[in-house]
Simulated scan of single mutants.
Amino acid sequence: GEILLEMNQYDSAHFYLSKDTRDYDPYFKATHYLNWSIYEEKIKNLPKALEYSKRYAELLDTIYQKRLESKVVNLQHKYDYSLIQSENKLLKIKRQRLYISLTAICMAVLTVAVIFFYKRREEKRKLAEQMRSKDDLMKEMRLQLQEKTIDLHAAQEKIIEKETALDKELSQREKMRSEYSSKEAAMRKEILRHSEIIRKMEQLNKMSQQDKIQSRSVVLSDEEQDNLAEVINICYNNFTDRLWKKFPTLTKADISLCCLIKIGISNSNMLYLLDTNKVALKKRKNRLKHDKMGMDENDSLDEFIMEF
């Protein structure tokens, strides 16, 4: 009704506006009165337009009062929550003080034990050093140190060789991956450039809004949708096959919608390519997201398709 009203098709606008029965909510009712006020003003029925405008203004006061009450309730909740947080902080501080006291006592006991153990060990070590010859001990330690130094140098050389070989291999793999990605992107772009969907998009971009609404030439046929699925399958690593395998209940129409999302077609252009409207397209996406793919409300269907 609003769209027809903007197009100055008053009879059709009156027909659809009269079907609006959403009077259970002040927001919907306010919108309802506003649309009727605009309609009556456009058909030069100014008294009726003024009456609807007054009703719309009264509802705005009601809506403002409800919002004000909601803000008061939210502030009360925040105040209660801040009190609870303050009490929790006090309890946390008391627990921390208790833990600090216990920790200090444990540290003191542990320190005494460590000092006692250290003194006992030092006494035993001194007795052991007196029982063996200092010269023999130094000689043995020197030999061990030389052996360990030789082993360490050999190990370091092996590690350096392995690191050099690994760096070279990683560099080659990174170069090959970069070249492969560039070739894959170029090939994908070239394949899509010859696809029928690109011709349709170019045709849409050249058409005016009115021509888009009236023209049927941009609507994808069943054969063109099948060809699109094949092209997307080639360009994106068997995209449609993997999608069908993971979600076997998908129909061909669902696959076509997923393909359009995959190549970044906007919702506004999908309306003309699939010969549908905004409400129907939104329902199709919701049914695909919740019923067939089992996704949560917070999940994004477009992001999932782009990353799949």
Rank of each mutant, 00 (worst) to 15 (best):
E2A: 13
I3T: 07
I3W: 12
L4M: 15
L4F: 15
E6Y: 09
M7P: 02
M7F: 11
Y16E: 00
D20S: 03
T21S: 08
T21H: 14
Y24M: 09
D25K: 06
D25T: 00
A30F: 10
T31C: 07
Y33S: 05
N35P: 01
Y39D: 01
N45K: 06
A49C: 08
A57D: 11
E58S: 02
E58R: 02
L60E: 15
L60F: 15
Q65K: 06
Q65S: 10
L68S: 08
S70C: 09
K71V: 10
V73Q: 12
L75I: 06
Q76N: 09
Y79A: 14
I84A: 13
K92N: 11
I93D: 15
Q96S: 14
Y99G: 06
S101L: 12
T103C: 03
V109Y: 14
Y118G: 14
E123Y: 11
R125C: 11
L127E: 14
A128W: 07
E129P: 04
R132W: 12
D135R: 08
D136Q: 11
Q146I: 12
Q146V: 07
Q156W: 09
E163F: 07
E163H: 10
T164H: 14
T164G: 14
T164P: 08
S171Y: 13
E174T: 13
K175F: 12
M176K: 08
Y180D: 14
S181C: 13
S182T: 06
K183S: 14
A185I: 05
A185H: 12
M187R: 07
I191F: 09
R193H: 09
I197M: 01
Q203E: 15
Q203Y: 10
L204W: 01
Q210N: 10
V219K: 09
L220F: 01
L220K: 03
L228N: 04
L228F: 10
I234H: 12
R242N: 05
R242I: 04
P248H: 00
L250T: 05
K252I: 01
I255Q: 06
C259T: 00
I261Y: 11
G264H: 02
I265S: 03
N269A: 08
L271Y: 05
L271G: 02
L271V: 03
N277P: 07
N277S: 04
K282Y: 11
R284H: 13
R284Y: 06
R287A: 09
K292V: 03
M293L: 07
M295C: 04
E297P: 00
L301K: 03
L301E: 00
E303F: 04
